[in-house]
């Protein structure tokens, strides 16, 4: 794949998904594209790209996006943010909803990859809200990549993925099969996984009434204009006073001024 071909492909993916690959990612993209060229029996980039562009099912674009967006992650990543969520944000939400008959708390893991983050959030919700009356909760977990979603739904992880899970939680929420750990069905059933493109206006408008959105290390794949667009969709998706957690190196203030920055004891969080 030449530099011009990379730019053609990069712009095509950007238009379809909002994901933007900088020039320095060319090698990363090229390796994955070449494996798709081989797998689909095409002789060169040109014929593969033409075929993909006119594939009305969109299946090949999805396959390629799947290959390009796999992110390795693990349970209880960025512990200080999760501590903030559990000990500072959740109590605020509960207080705010104290007048409601049934306090429903809705959390969204946007860009959930193979499921470590939403299951971590589900464990926290289970632990923090157990025994509190009139409380129900939901964790929604979305990703553009259908392959990682399938893996997430299976809920089976290596010992490396669960290395930061406290022993007590490992016993309570996982079934160990040798080196593998399976999320217990009771927890698995509480997380709703589905595919979602954060740049899809129609799909994003269905996402409403969330109290917290976790979108960590996802917006780094977007360019400035798409980041603002996604931030606006998040704004619409959040309930009044809702919170957004970004990755530790990301800043919403650099994307848009529409959220307030809240300095909690354990972390910085953005609030509607």
């Amino acid at each position: 794949m030449t530099a011009e071909e990379f730019i053609k492909l990069r712009d095509f993916i950007y238009r379809k998904t909002g994901i933007y690959f900088e020039e320095h990612k060319m090698y990363y993209v090229r390796n994955r594209v070449e494996s798709r060229i081989k797998a689909t029996g095409h002789e060169n980039f040109r014929s593969y790209f033409t075929w993909m562009r006119f594939d009305v099912t969109g299946q090949e674009l999805q396959e390629l996006v799947n290959l390009l967006t796999v992110n390795e992650t693990y349970f209880f990543r960025e512990y200080y943010q999760l501590k903030c969520f559990a000990e500072e944000v959740l109590p605020e939400i509960l207080d705010r909803k104290c007048e409601e008959k049934v306090r429903m708390i809705r959390v969204w893991s946007a860009g959930c990859s193979t499921g470590e983050e939403p299951y971590t959030l589900a464990i926290i919700m289970e632990e923090m809200l157990e025994g509190i009356e009139r409380v129900m909760w939901e964790v929604h977990a979305t990703d553009i990549n259908t392959e990682v979603l399938e893996r997430a739904e299976m809920g089976i992880y290596s010992s490396r993925s669960v290395r930061l899970v406290p022993e007590e939680y490992k016993k309570r929420y996982f079934i160990q099969h040798g080196e593998l750990y399976e999320v217990i069905p009771e927890l698995r059933n509480k997380v709703k996984f589905y595919q979602l493109n954060l740049m899809d206006a129609v799909a994003m408008r269905k996402m409403v009434g969330f109290d917290v959105i976790f979108c960590r290390n996802v917006l780094i794949y977007f360019d400035d204009a798409s980041r603002r667009q996604v931030a606006l969709y998040f704004y619409e998706a959040l309930a009044e006073g809702g919170y957004i957690f970004l990755g530790h190196s990301e800043s919403m203030s650099r994307i848009t001024p529409i959220f307030k920055l809240r300095r909690f004891k354990n972390a910085f969080v953005y609030q509607k």
């Binding site: 204009a225 603002r228 931030a231 606006l232 704004y235 848009t256 001024p257 529409i258």
Partner: peptide, 12 residues
């Protein structure tokens, strides 16, 4: 400010 940000987004 949110509507303004949405306008910037649409103009772009």
């Amino acid at each position: 400010r949110v509507v303004q940000e949405a306008i910037v987004s649409s103009l772009i």
